[in-house]
Design a protein around this nucleic acid. Structure first.
Length: 508
RNA sequence: GGUGCGUUGGCCGAGUGGCUAGGCGCAGGUCUGCAAAACCUGUCACAGUGGUUCGAUUCCGCUACGCACCUCCA
C-alpha cells in the first residue's frame, strides 16, 4: 500500500497517515448549514474531501465518511446572541423550520450530485441527535467545565484553559482571544466573553426547542460535531476536515468539548481546505459576494460571463492545491473549461485506441480498483508520469501536480493518435489505468457530453448520417455543400473536426 | 491591536538551493481543399531589500503590499 502524507493543522506539518485501525479510516467533515443555496465556496470542501475519501479507498482503505447537516443551533451574527439561521429563514418565508431544512438539503444534494461528489457514508443531522447532545452537556457539566446561567449552559473556557490548553489548533492563547473579543449586548449570562453556549435556553418566540434538564432549549452549534463524530466514528478517529474559517472557533471548541467530555480530543489529523476568493477577497455570505452553485451552472449572475458546467467547477478546484486560496474569475473558469474539454477528448481517443468505452462510474459507487504497486508501461515517459501522478496525490493530495502529469498523458495520447509516436500495449494499458482510476475514479471527473441514453444514441446516429453526406460532398469536391453542413452544425454548437480517418465531432 | 498566511510570466496556478510543473492566451510552423482540432517551437516569471552560500525564485532578516481568523462563514 502506498504511503499517504497529509498536512495536519494541529502540528502544522505534513505527517505520514496512519489510521487508528489498520485498513480502516474514519473521517468527519463539517457539512453545510441548510438555510440557503450552497455557493462556490461550499463546492471546495465538497470536492476536496470527496477526492480524499476516494483516494483513501483507492489506496485500499475501507472508509467511513461522515458529513453532517446542520439544521439547528447555528446562530447569526454572534454565536450566543443571534437568531437561529434556520429559524430566521423559516420566519421570513413563513415555513416550518424543517421545510427550510428539507428544501435546502435536497438542493445541496442536487448540487453535490452534479459536481460528482459522492454521498458520505453517513449524513447525520444535528436535530436528530438532541438526546446525545443533552448527554454530552451533562458530561461536560459533571466534569466541571460548564456552568448553568439563566437556563443556558456555557462552556467554562477559563477553567478549561487552566487544566488543558485552549487554542491548540488555531495556535492562539486565551489572552489574545480576550483582547480581540468584542463586548456585545445580551451576553450578560456568560462569565467570560470567550465562553460559548453548549445548550441555549429558548426564548418564548423561538420555535425550534426541545425539553432538557435545564428547561426548553436547543443545542449550541459546536456541540453537534463533537457528538456525532464520537457516535459514528468512536472516541478516537482519523480525519476531521472542514474549511479553514471553521478552525476558530468551531473546531477549537470541538476540541475543548471532546477533552471535557471524554478526556481526549480524539482527532488524529485535522485537515483544512482554504477559501475561494473573488477579487482576492473571501467569498462569503456575510460579504454578499458569493455566487451560488445553481447560479454558476445556469450562468445567472451579473459576475458570470457565461454558464459553467459542474465538471468545469470541479476541474477548476482540482487545478489548485486545497490548502491555498483559489481566486474566482471568468478567465480562470474559461481556461478550466477548455482544459477539461481537451482532457476528455484525449480520454475518448485513448479508449477508442484500445477499443473500449470510457468507464462509467455510477454516482456514489466506487467501482475503481485498488492502486497497483507499479505499472506495466515500457515507455519511460509513461512510466514516469504514472509514478508522478501517484506521488503527487499521496503527497498531501497534490491534485495540481497530478493534473500536470495527466496533461503529459494527454500530450502523449494525442501524439500517438497523430501517429508521431507509437505506444506499446503495456503503455496504453497504463494510460487507461490512469484514466480509469485517477481521472474518472479518484479525481471524479467525467465527460458531460450528453451522448448517453436513448436520445444520445439517436444524436450519434444522426451525426453519422450527416457526416456521411458531408464526406460524399467532399469526395465530389462539392465544397459549398460540405462547408454548409459544417457551418450549420457549428451554429448548433457542434464542432466538426476533420482528421486522417474521417471526421469527428464534439458538442461545444 | 493579536495570530497566521501569501506576493511566481498576459491570466490561472504548482514547485525547487544549481537541471527551473501544467492549463489558458498569444506568435510562428506542420497537417488540411479551406477552417477547426491535433502536433512542434517560441512566449527570456519568481514583490523590494540586506544576508547565508561556490550558487537563491527556493533558507534567514527587514520593508512594502495583500489576505484570512480573532463575530456567523466552507
Amino acid at each position: 500500500m502506498k504511503t499517504l502524507r497529509l498536512t495536519n493543522t494541529l502540528t502544522r506539518t505534513k505527517e505520514v497517515f496512519k489510521p487508528v485501525n489498520p485498513g480502516h479510516v474514519g473521517m468527519y467533515v463539517c457539512g453545510p448549514t441548510v438555510y440557503g443555496d450552497a455557493h462556490l465556496g461550499h463546492a471546495r470542501p465538497g470536492v476536496t474531501y470527496d477526492v480524499l475519501s476516494k483516494l483513501l479507498r483507492h489506496l485500499g482503505y475501507k472508509v467511513r465518511y461522515v458529513r453532517n447537516i446542520t439544521d439547528v443551533g447555528h446562530l447569526e451574527h454572534d454565536a450566543d446572541a443571534g437568531e437561529d439561521k434556520i429559524a430566521k429563514k423559516a420566519r421570513l418565508e413563513q415555513l416550518e423550520p424543517m421545510e427550510v431544512v428539507q428544501t435546502y438539503t435536497l438542493r445541496y444534494h442536487e448540487a453535490m450530485r452534479k459536481l460528482n461528489v459522492a454521498p458520505p457514508s453517513i449524513e447525520p443531522r444535528a436535530s436528530g441527535h438532541i438526546v446525545e447532545q443533552i448527554e454530552a452537556v451533562k458530561r461536560i457539566l459533571d466534569a466541571g467545565y460548564a456552568y448553568e446561567s439563566n437556563g443556558s449552559i456555557y462552556f467554562d473556557v477559563r477553567k478549561y484553559n487552566g487544566d488543558h490548553k485552549y487554542g491548540v489548533l488555531s495556535g492562539r492563547n486565551l489572552d489574545d482571544t480576550l483582547e480581540g473579543t468584542r463586548e456585545l449586548d445580551g451576553q450578560s449570562d456568560k462569565r467570560a466573553p470567550f465562553d460559548f453556549a453548549i445548550w441555549k435556553k429558548a426564548e418564548p418566540e423561538h420555535i425550534m426547542r426541545w425539553p432538557s434538564p435545564w428547561g426548553e432549549g436547543f443545542p449550541g452549534w459546536h456541540l453537534e460535531c463533537s457528538v456525532m463524530g464520537e457516535k459514528y466514528l468512536g472516541q478516537e478517529f482519523d480525519i476531521h476536515g472542514g474549511g479553514m474559517d471553521l478552525m476558530f472557533p468551531h473546531h477549537e471548541c470541538e476540541i475543548a468539548q471532546n477533552v471535557a467530555c471524554r478526556g481526549t480530543q480524539g482527532v488524529h489529523y485535522w485537515v483544512h481546505n482554504n477559501m475561494i476568493t473573488i477579487n482576492g477577497q473571501k467569498m462569503g455570505k456575510s460579504l454578499g459576494n458569493f455566487i451560488t452553485l445553481p447560479q454558476l451552472f445556469a450562468g445567472e449572475h451579473e459576475k458570470l460571463a457565461q454558464a459553467y458546467s459542474p465538471m468545469t467547477i470541479r476541474f477548476f478546484i482540482l487545478q489548485a492545491h486545497y490548502r491555498g486560496t483559489l481566486d474566482f474569475s471568468n478567465d480562470a473558469l474559461q481556461a478550466a473549461e477548455k482544459g477539461l474539454k481537451r482532457l476528455m477528448q484525449a480520454a475518448k481517443d485513448l479508449y477508442a485506441m484500445v477499443g473500449r468505452k470510457a468507464p462509467r462510474y455510477v454516482y456514489g459507487e466506487e467501482a475503481f480498483g485498488v492502486a497497483p504497486d507499479s505499472c506495466s508501461a515500457v515507455n519511460a515517459e509513461v512510466k514516469a508520469l504514472w509514478e508522478n501522478v501517484y506521488d503527487a496525490l499521496c503527497d498531501d493530495m497534490n491534485t495540481p501536480i497530478a493534473l500536470a502529469g495527466i496533461s503529459e498523458a494527454v500530450r502523449i495520447i494525442n501524439s500517438a493518435k497523430a501517429g508521431s509516436i507509437r505506444l506499446a500495449k503495456e503503455d496504453l494499458d497504463t494510460l487507461c489505468q490512469l484514466f480509469d482510476d485517477i481521472v474518472f475514479g479518484v479525481l471524479g471527473l467525467k465527460d458531460e457530453e450528453g451522448t448517453d441514453g436513448t436520445s444520445g444514441k439517436v444524436i450519434a446516429g444522426l451525426m453519422d448520417m450527416v457526416l456521411e453526406q458531408r464526406a460524399a460532398a467532399k469526395a465530389a469536391k462539392d465544397w459549398t455543400t460540405s462547408d454548409h453542413i459544417r457551418d450549420s452544425l457549428k451554429a448548433l454548437g457542434i464542432q466538426v473536426k476533420d482528421g486522417k480517418n474521417g471526421a469527428e465531432w464534439t458538442i461545444e
